[in-house]
Design a protein around this nucleic acid. Sequence first.
DNA 1: AAGTGGTCTAGACCACGAA
DNA 2: TCGTGGTCTAGACCACTTA
Lengths: 237, 237
Amino acid sequence: MTKKPMYYDIYLKIKNMISNGEYAVGDFLPTENDLEKIYRVSRTTIRKVISLLSSDGYIEVKQGSGTRVANFNSTQRFNRVTSISETLRKNNNIVTTKSIFIDTIKPEKKIAEKLKIDVNDDIYRVQRVILANDIPVAIIKNYIHHKFTPKIDKKVNDIKSLYIFLESEYNLRIDSAKDLISAKNSDFIESELLNVDIGTSLMSIERTSFQKNIPITYDESIIRADKYKIEVHTKGR
Amino acid sequence: MTKKPMYYDIYLKIKNMISNGEYAVGDFLPTENDLEKIYRVSRTTIRKVISLLSSDGYIEVKQGSGTRVANFNSTQRFNRVTSISETLRKNNNIVTTKSIFIDTIKPEKKIAEKLKIDVNDDIYRVQRVILANDIPVAIIKNYIHHKFTPKIDKKVNDIKSLYIFLESEYNLRIDSAKDLISAKNSDFIESELLNVDIGTSLMSIERTSFQKNIPITYDESIIRADKYKIEVHTKGR
DNA sequence: AAGTGGTCTAGACCACGAA
DNA sequence: TCGTGGTCTAGACCACTTA
């Protein structure tokens, strides 16, 4: 039983209000002083909330002026850890999930190494196809240790975006990731699931995601290159 | 005159001690309680310092156990702008260039937009094939405005890695880049140049590179997926 | 000048990890 | 059990923006 700190509840509450449009883009949030009163907590707690929302890119904080909801689309967002479904949704696609399937397996050696676990440990395998506007775009497999997400198989219907799900249900906050990007010709199964000809060129992403440098999930994605492109911004030399 | 907060001084001090080896990799830092006493500040200030060092990757914080200096090698390195040839070289490949060719063209509309120039401006087009250990790995086209690299066509033999070349010859220091990564089936010409069957899945990278937010080059790379993978590290959510 | 976020104090109790 | 970092309070004063 994980106990959630207060700031986390408030963080989720405000995040939802932004998503729902209760705080619209450009709106000022209440001042920190007011937020203290609204949620009956100290300034420290409020500032923790503000700092989380800000590092998410939801708000822009300016000393002397105030805190306002950021423009999500035009913001020059540097690389942040996002999922395919989150990105599709941000680009105004209607995102749905087809044939989600969760089972328990023992990891292959490669996956065990990535997750720094034993090959005899039980892990969940989450498999699904992501559709954007009813067109299949990606096949995604997530591998995650039982200890992180007990009974995730009972909650199968709630998963829209895995990272958001992990955050709200299990208090797991992915804060970094390593991706290995490649390409491959589609095989029979991929062609069937993604509705493309056999041999079509597809992108492949292998990702290890971390919370505080501890590996949480290993993800394999196979993506239609005609429907999705990967954007990477790098800085510094 | 900008006044520096206390936490910043302490942050720099500890960062230097780590760089100098006064705190070596694996060493525990003093506890937060002790640091309060050492620097005669409150816990809040110390925790701000710790949080900065941690997000820099210098230290690893673990509740109940302590805070220790992180191993910089195994820590995930941040993305930096690198080229394919630089990366191949770093992985101990012998990198050579085949059939380099430079000409002057007028940009297509798409390229003019990326470089924020006029379609009537003259630009150089640099084309080459990159080999690693004598095996062709990538076809690269670079587009760059005449004004940035006058007479680059006379220096054709000196180019090993374009970014390094730009830096040493023209004092152009690329400091950020935007990549768009996709995949495609190889056509006839690509198959010939890369020595693969027609239809083989290849990676494609379209990059715009910048110096201080001014676009310098637009690059198109076609890469053999069996010889090269793209690594991306992201941080923050 | 008024009001915002930024820094800082001196406490307190809780949750986790190791012995 | 003990010591560590994690959360939280109720104040205070400073630095910046806007009017």
